[in-house]
């Protein structure tokens, strides 16, 4: 076949995979957010004093586990679909097993240690969004409302204030998780699961197009 047909086929694959990943991540992100919400709803009020610690011990492991599982799942799909595109058996353009292992999906997806992936390790706290100036002094004041003025109000006011605090924390956590999974189109350099998968798709496309000439 002519190179144009091979090029068209691999672009079909790349475009469709990027579309699939974007759509599926949008669909699946709520599953992670539900987990995070459940953790926050179980969060004792005292934990708000050390929200960062609670996040690291209770929410972060769940998030990392979920993201790693999604990464593996998508990687397997990419690996399989890419193989179907390149292994066409054409004399000039088929990738042999060794070529594939050297430069193809196998190298990109099986060898890279998950811990080295940018979205897996650590907590992204862009602009202090997740833990903005949390301190012992600030949190009790927040719980009772607007400081000293609110101290005279009863349990209902404290409950309202606690609810607001929980809501704010939940929003911050969700924003952070959304960023780690979907990234930000306006800030493409921020690491994310989608960005990493897209980079790998783009890399495979570039290698294939370069090979085809």
């Amino acid at each position: 076949m002519t190179q144009e047909i091979f090029r068209a086929e691999v672009i079909d694959w790349w475009s469709a995979e990027r579309g699939r990943i974007a759509a599926e991540l949008e669909e699946r992100l709520p599953l992670l957010l539900v987990k995070a919400r459940a953790k926050i709803e179980q969060m004792p009020m005292s934990a708000y004093v050390w929200r960062e610690e609670y996040y690291r011990t209770e929410i972060e492991p769940e998030a990392v586990q979920w993201i790693e599982a999604e990464y593996r799942r998508f990687s397997a799909g990419i690996d399989s679909s890419f193989s179907a595109v390149v292994e066409t058996g054409d004399d000039r353009h088929s990738w042999s097993g060794s070529d594939y292992a050297a430069v193809g999906a196998a190298a990109a997806f099986s060898v890279a240690p998950l811990a080295a992936l940018p979205f897996v390790g650590g907590v992204i706290t862009t602009g202090g969004l997740l833990f903005p100036a949390a301190s012992i002094a600030v949190v009790p004041a927040a719980i009772v409302g607007a400081g000293a003025v609110a101290l005279g109000y009863g349990p209902s006011m404290r409950s309202w204030a606690a609810g607001k605090l929980q809501e704010g924390f939940l929003q911050n956590v969700e924003d952070d998780l959304r960023l780690r999974v979907l990234g930000d189109a306006e800030q493409p350099d921020l690491p994310s699961l989608k960005g990493t998968l897209f980079s790998e798709l783009d890399g495979l496309l570039a290698k294939r197009l370069e090979e085809l000439g």
Partner: peptide
């Protein structure tokens, strides 16, 4: 303009 960019 891959599919995800079109969707965006």
């Amino acid at each position: 303009f891959p599919q995800d960019v079109l969707a965006h």
